[in-house]
Design a protein around this nucleic acid. Structure first.
Lengths: 175, 175
DNA sequence: GGGCGGATGTCAGTTACTGCCATGACTATA
DNA sequence: TATAGTCATGGCAGTAACTGACATCCGCCC
C-alpha cells in the first residue's frame, strides 16, 4: 500500500504498473494480486474497517436520535478515525482526483457505506424509504465535508465541518 | 449498443467479449473502440443527452423555486425521457445490477450529473454549499425513485414516485 | 528427521485497450 | 471524368491487467 501510494504520487496511477508496485514492495506481481483484487483496490484497503466503525456508531446512537442524526453519527465516527491522518488523506485524495477509474472505485465504496448505514438504520426500526434516504443524505454530507476538509488550508476539524454541512442540508431541505 | 445489451443479457457482462459484440453488430473490435471508450461505456451512451435535458430543466425552473425544487425539476425532466422505455430500462438495469464494474460506471455518471446540476444551480445564483447539497439530494431522490420504478410490478409513473420520495426526504430532514 | 500448511514464486494464457498504417467509399472541385 | 481529400473501417502488433495451475520454500509440530 505504501509503495503504491508513493508511485501513484510520483508518476500517476496510469503510468504505474503493478509490476513496479510489487518490485518496490519486494514482492512479485502475482503476490500483489493475492492481496488486492485489482490495481485500484490497493488504495481502498482500509474502507471495510471504516465501514465497521460507521455501522457500529449508527447502531449505538441514542434511541432518541432521528434516523438522519443516527446516520450522521456514523460518519462522525468515521471522521474521528480520519482526523489524525489529514496529510495521508490529502495525498491519497490527490491521486484519486487525478484519475477517473479511482473515482469510480471511491464512489462504489461510498455507495456500499450508504447501504450499510441504511441496513443499520433498519435494525433500529427505521422503515424504507426513510432509511435509504437518511443514509444517502449522510453520505452526501460526508462527501461534501470531506472534500472541504482535505482542500482547506486551515486546521478546522472534520467533525465541525460535518456538523455545519448537516445544518446546511436541513436548511436546504426545509426552505 | 443493441448487440451489447442482448449479449450481456444472455451471457452476462464478464462472459461477453468485445469481439463477440462487434461480430454480432457486423463490425470489428477496433471499430467498437472508436465509438466507445471502453466495454462498459456501451451501456451508458445516452447519459450525456440525459444530462443536457436535466441541466436545461434546472436552468428553466421558475424563479420562485427553491434550490432543491429546481434540482428535482431537473430529474423530473429526465424521468419524462425515461418513462416510455421502462422495459429497456429494466433490462439494462438488470445487467448493471449483476456486475460491479458496471455499477461503478453508473455511479460516476450519476456523480457527473450531480455536479452538472450543482453548476446549473450556481448559474441561478445559488451559493455553495447549498448548490452542492441540493444537487446531491436530488441525485439521492433519483437513485431511490428509479430503483423503485424499475423493480415495481405496477404501472406507477416515475414522476409520481419522485414526488413522493422528495416529500419523504423533506420529512426526514426536518424531523 | 519428516511431513504439513500457508505464503510466495513462476509461467502461460486471456482479454481489454491503443497506436499505426492500409484500404475503400464518398464528395468536392477542376 | 479525373483527382484529391476526408472519413469510416479493417488489420495487426503491442502493452498491461488479471487468472489458473503448479512448484517451491519457510516455519512449525510431532
Amino acid at each position: 500500500m505504501q509503495a503504491a501510494l508513493d508511485l501513484f504520487g510520483e508518476r500517476g496511477f496510469e503510468r504505474t504498473t503493478v509490476v513496479e508496485i510489487a518490485e518496490r514492495a519486494g514482492l512479485t506481481e502475482r503476490t500483489f494480486f493475492r492481496y488486492f483484487a485489482d490495481k485500484r483496490e490497493v488504495l481502498f484497503a482500509g474502507a471495510s474497517m471504516l465501514q465497521d466503525v460507521v455501522v457500529q456508531a449508527v447502531v449505538d446512537a441514542p434511541h432518541s436520535a432521528t434516523p438522519l442524526d443516527a446516520a450522521v453519527a456514523g460518519i462522525e465516527a468515521a471522521s474521528a478515525v480520519l482526523q489524525d491522518g489529514r496529510e495521508l488523506s490529502r495525498r491519497r485524495q490527490a491521486v484519486i482526483n487525478a484519475n477517473r477509474e479511482l473515482q469510480e472505485r471511491e464512489l462504489i465504496k461510498l455507495a456500499a457505506l450508504g447501504t450499510a448505514i441504511a441496513d443499520a438504520l433498519r435494525r433500529r426500526g427505521v422503515k424504507d424509504p426513510s432509511a435509504s434516504l437518511s443514509a444517502e443524505m449522510a453520505i452526501a454530507v460526508f462527501k461534501i465535508s470531506f472534500g472541504r476538509w482535505v482542500s482547506q488550508s486551515g486546521q478546522r476539524e472534520l467533525r465541525s465541518i460535518i456538523r455545519a454541512s448537516l445544518n446546511e442540508l436541513k436548511g436546504v431541505a426545509t426552505s
